[in-house]
Design a protein around this nucleic acid. Structure first.
Lengths: 193, 193, 193, 193
DNA sequence: CCATAACCGAGACGGTACGTCATGTCTTCCA
DNA sequence: TGGAAGACATGACGTACCGTCTCGGTTATGG
């Protein structure tokens, strides 16, 4: 197995950058190890030596890009307002050409590679989910939300956005983001009942 | 352009069946036109003549499989109970090996092929969505649900399930289905507020 | 088996013309039955019905083209002069783009199809050879040639030309034609001997 | 362009051997790059990397086979006797199944590929022609032949054999070889003249 | 003078091979 | 020894033709 202490950092960054860019330029279908190596000015073996799959490269590329991206969701004291802010930002990002294609590429790999999905969940999704749950928890403490399972709450709020993006099953707009937040907060049940 | 009146129906069915089965057996990554043609006992050209892409074949395979599948969602008068029944069934199907892999394959293709996504939406998603909205509409009439945007309601209910399935971001169980229904119906907001 | 009395003469001519032209335009390698049928505005089956092979079509095309071509070689009384005239004409024809490629195509087919070679020999080569032998016989009668095997004589005179054309083993010029005639007539042996 | 220093010699030999054998077994029409690759246990790309065409492979196969084949034509002092010896050997070789088909295949390719014909001429034909001219030159020095153009002499002697082989226009026997030699040496012209 | 059998155009079909591209492994050579 | 370079066996791609096979739509006799 390779000795990572001898690893060439410049090559590593060149590969990840090339992978991310190519995913955005040519799309998932035409994203190839050969292409990444050529763009990065690197031998193919250098990729195969350090990553087990195309998806793993892509994942690391995301990791590098999102490095230092962090911290907390906004807190104004009004959970509805804050969730709308966040979801609108998410929608904007998903509509951004620069992120759309690479994210689709990564999602595709995850879809068929449970191991990659697990790693992704651990390294990228969980931290983000924790941020989300953290904000929701504060809202519970503020008496704005009832004491539900926060994981389910996250899924109910962010799930609809993700699905629309993936399947293009409807327009992915800021209005949609707002309505999702309102609906998730108020529930579907008639208040009379 | 091919003359569809001369089309060989037997070959068509053999191709769609082979595509569905292979998607289930070898997964998306190893699903090839050559493999489908070989399994179906058909020349490759016969596939290329009638379908523009691997995704289109897969889509037609789903169409054939879901032919006559239909009608209405259950109606007992209790929307919560009925939604739980439906979502539990959905979860069961998504966990069924026979459907999991082919669906992932189709979703992958849709993810990168907007035209295919559009067709899918029109031919398969819309009808199902209409069934769902129809059941929800009855619940509104029954005074069980408030008068929300039904498309958003559908996304809020079914979105979390779909996302967990796709990304394997958490366990996809019947309990999860139940909690999603309860949360979506009651909303996250504290009743005190 | 097909009833040739019902045969469509127009189609037949269109096929042969198309075959000859295409052989000249695209060369042997890209000459296809499909191409001939398309150019002739004819169904493929009409070709397969009447000819056993591509070579047979080509052969018939030559037969049609050389119809009525004939009679006798020139006779001025001087065999050397006459042979030079004939060989120069042959060289000119072989250098003519319009005949070069189709002839190469036909020769290729004959090379690998003994049956076709036999038919060609009978129908086209023998008549031409008879004309050649006829002229040589007259030269024998005129006391200009000794009484050799005329078939061998024909091969010795025309063989060198044919080989140079086929293999491009040297320049195929009128001068070459002249020298071949002179050499074949005089022989290689030193007159002293 | 490929770096020939990295070339795998074992693959090269396997390809050339396979090409020669297959040409002899299945004939020109069914000789395919795929078939050669399969027989040689080699990827198709390895053939496409190093040779521009099927004909070039075949040519190299001949080159390999005729390696070290050489030297000089027999010299007993009697040119007629020696030429008969050589032409009889040529006839025998052309009638040998092991050489007939591969040679036809190579000739076919040369016929349609001037570049290949040029290479063949340079690398295989010229050396053989030089041997032939060398023997004829000695005969001239011995006073057995007159001082004719030796290239034409070679064509007059060997041309008839080649043409009969290619076109099967007559029986290719040792008797024919003898008569061709006699006729070429004595000439056709009547000795009286 | 129609009926019926053939030819005809068109082109779908199961195949084979094409020439290209990417895979993941291996080897060579350089720093 | 890590890395750039790239040859290698493998296998899928999408295309071109093969030779066979229907499908209607004309001919063109022969009963």
């Amino acid at each position: 197995m390779p000795d990572s202490s001898r690893r060439n950092e410049k090559s590593r960054r060149a590969i990840l950058t090339a992978a991310f860019e190519l995913a955005g330029e040519v799309g998932y279908g035409k994203l190839s190890i050969e292409g990444i190596a050529a763009r990065a000015g690197v031998g193919k073996q250098t990729i195969y030596r350090w990553w087990p799959s195309k998806g793993a490269v892509l994942f690391d590329a995301f990791l590098m890009m999102s490095e230092g991206e962090t911290g907390e969701l906004p807190y104004t004291g009004d959970i509805e307002r804050d969730l709308k802010t966040v979801l609108r930002a998410t929608v904007a990002e998903l509509r951004d050409e620069r992120y759309d294609l690479p994210m689709r590429a990564l999602n595709t790999e995850m879809m068929h590679d449970p191991e990659l999905a697990r790693t992704y969940t651990e390294r990228l999704e969980e931290p983000m989910r924790d941020m989300k749950k953290s904000r929701l928890r504060k809202a519970v403490e503020d008496g704005q939300l009832s004491d539900v399972d926060l994981d389910v709450a996250v899924d109910v709020i962010w799930g609809p956005i993700t699905v629309r993006w993936m399947n293009r099953s409807g327009p992915l707009t800021e209005e949609f983001a707002d309505v999702v937040v309102e609906t998730a907060l108020s529930g579907l049940r008639s208040p009379v009942a």
